[in-house]
């Protein structure tokens, strides 16, 4: 779908975990056209560069888009102060999302921290296609955990914290054996986590979603690139991605 510059009306702002904000936004075009894994390139007042934030959920009837973001720096700090009724503009739906064609397969969703959000809308979409879903969600500590019940409603869900303060202890990769059989996986999270997953699952088909500092967000400026696995150049995260086949890029 074509990227447009859209006006997002904020409907609710909720603090759902440590420094983690859930924001429900109203916008017709994006709610009708976005697919899981796509993102909004949000303009934040006072900032030269837009901020990429994944689409975490969509309600097509209410024409709303949910985003979840962590307050990490100046831009997300400012966005977190926005109140219901306020608006901001976003380019979207941006990027290439998770393509899912197979029904009735078993999928493993592996999310790390603020990489969890895009997997929720993906999981919901897969559940509607009658797929089996198993989720492994990794967080630093208990206070960072969010959306556990929502993922549980989609299928078996493991929560793992690095310090063991909630759920299992360790990293998401420590839990993969417990997840049982799956046909392919979808993952989003920090690069070290994605690296650990792709090297642990070298032969499984998988799609991973990547992050990098972006400029234009539409594929023109060549800022957010990742080397191709074939060593022959770069892929653009904002427009070729952010979702790639696990074996397509060199992490």
């Amino acid at each position: 779908m074509m990227i447009q510059k859209e006006n997002m009306i904020i409907r609710s702002v909720t603090n759902i975990a440590l420094d983690t904000i859930e924001m429900v936004l109203e916008n017709t075009y994006i709610s009708k056209t976005a697919i899981p894994g796509q993102f909004l390139h949000a303009a934040i007042e006072g900032h030269t560069l837009r901020r990429p934030i994944s689409i975490a959920d969509i309600d097509q009837e209410k024409e709303t888009i949910t985003i979840l973001f962590k307050i990490l720096g100046k831009g997300t700090e400012k966005l977190a102060t926005y109140q219901p009724g306020m608006t901001f503009d976003a380019l979207g739906p941006s990027g290439n999302g998770f393509q899912v064609d197979n029904t009735r397969a078993t999928y493993l969703l592996i999310g790390g921290g603020i990489g969890v959000p895009p997997l929720y809308y993906l999981g919901k979409t897969l559940a509607e296609k009658k797929c089996n879903i198993v989720s492994i969600l990794g967080f630093q500590t208990e206070e960072n955990v969010f959306y556990e019940e929502r993922f549980q409603a989609l299928g078996k869900t493991f929560i793992v914290t690095n310090d063991g303060s909630y759920g299992e202890t360790g990293f998401v990769t420590d839990i993969i054996e417990k997840a049982g059989h799956f046909d392919s996986y979808f993952s989003c999270g920090p690069v070290p986590m994605l690296k650990a997953i792709t090297s642990k699952l070298p032969t499984k088909p998988g799609l991973i979603s990547l992050e990098e500092r972006m400029g234009c967000g539409v594929g023109a400026c060549m800022a957010c690139v990742i080397p191709s696995a074939d060593g022959k150049g770069y892929q653009k995260i904002c427009s070729d991605g952010p979702v790639f086949h696990a074996q397509e890029v060199s992490l």
Binding site: E212, R213, G215, C221
Partner: peptide
Amino acid sequence: GNPTPRVAE
């Protein structure tokens, strides 16, 4: 081109 990150605000 160069390795990433390539931009900063």
